[in-house]
Amino acid sequence: MLFGELGATVELTVAAMLLAVVLSAAIALLTSGQRPAVRFVAQALEIVAVSVPSFWLGIVLMTIFSFGLRWVPAFGNESPVALVLPVITLAVPLVGVITQILRERVEHQLHEPFVTTIRARGVGEAGLRSRHLLRHASVPALTLSSIIFGSLLTGTVIIETLFARPGIGRVIVMALQNRDVPVVLGFVIFAALVFIVINTVVDLLLPLIDPRLKEER
């Protein structure tokens, strides 16, 4: 039962995670090292994004873009367009968290000696931030993202129920309502395996991103 519904949950989770990572990287690179006013506005918006309940954000998005403007469907999984609102609803809180970590690390890297060396070679600010600073700053964000991804994969109950989408979340809700203990236990074991596998993969990838970690090991 779980693996029969896994595809829809993975589709939603991967899309939300990719959107969150891309937006977080772009915002962090654009706002790091800027004037205090720019950073203050960015941090305020990130705090709001983290604090807004997902179910409330989903209802607001459905009211505006589905019932009001009629741009995208609110329910179901019949077309790729139906992914838009659930993905945004899942991604917004992630953007607030990941952006804060990335910006803090990018600003820390800006004061490292290698930045002066790279600038002395004639590398522009855009190249410095995108090719060098982002790579060094992504290690803690990647570690956090692995935990977030595991939580998303096993915690999409609210979003799948709100948008009437198939997935593991709805299966678990039905299992709890029917007191189906084997399904609930299977879900717990599956969630534990997801966290173990994702964290193992991330631990193997980190030395490839930052060779200094390999030297420390």
Results as ranks from 00 to 15, higher is better:
residue 1 M to A: 15
residue 3 F to W: 13
residue 4 G to A: 13
residue 4 G to M: 13
residue 4 G to V: 12
residue 7 G to F: 12
residue 12 L to D: 09
residue 15 A to Y: 08
residue 16 A to H: 06
residue 20 A to F: 06
residue 26 A to N: 00
residue 26 A to L: 12
residue 27 I to Y: 04
residue 29 L to Y: 01
residue 32 S to M: 00
residue 32 S to E: 01
residue 33 G to Q: 06
residue 38 V to N: 01
residue 42 A to R: 02
residue 42 A to E: 05
residue 43 Q to E: 14
residue 45 L to C: 04
residue 45 L to D: 02
residue 51 S to H: 07
residue 52 V to D: 01
residue 54 S to L: 12
residue 62 M to L: 13
residue 67 F to I: 13
residue 67 F to W: 09
residue 68 G to T: 10
residue 68 G to K: 02
residue 71 W to G: 05
residue 72 V to R: 03
residue 83 L to T: 03
residue 88 I to K: 00
residue 94 L to W: 05
residue 95 V to R: 06
residue 96 G to K: 02
residue 99 T to Y: 01
residue 103 R to T: 02
residue 103 R to F: 07
residue 105 R to E: 13
residue 108 H to D: 12
residue 117 T to E: 06
residue 120 A to K: 04
residue 121 R to K: 03
residue 124 G to S: 02
residue 125 E to M: 04
residue 125 E to H: 01
residue 131 R to H: 02
residue 131 R to A: 09
residue 132 H to A: 03
residue 135 R to T: 05
residue 135 R to W: 07
residue 136 H to C: 10
residue 137 A to H: 06
residue 141 A to R: 00
residue 143 T to G: 13
residue 151 S to F: 13
residue 154 T to V: 12
residue 155 G to D: 04
residue 156 T to R: 03
residue 156 T to V: 15
residue 156 T to Y: 02
residue 160 E to S: 05
residue 163 F to I: 07
residue 166 P to A: 10
residue 172 I to K: 01
residue 176 L to Y: 13
residue 180 D to T: 04
residue 186 G to S: 10
residue 187 F to V: 15
residue 188 V to S: 14
residue 189 I to T: 15
residue 190 F to C: 12
residue 191 A to C: 15
residue 194 V to T: 08
residue 198 I to F: 14
residue 199 N to G: 12
residue 207 P to D: 07
residue 209 I to A: 06
residue 211 P to S: 05
residue 214 K to Y: 15
residue 216 E to M: 14
residue 216 E to C: 13
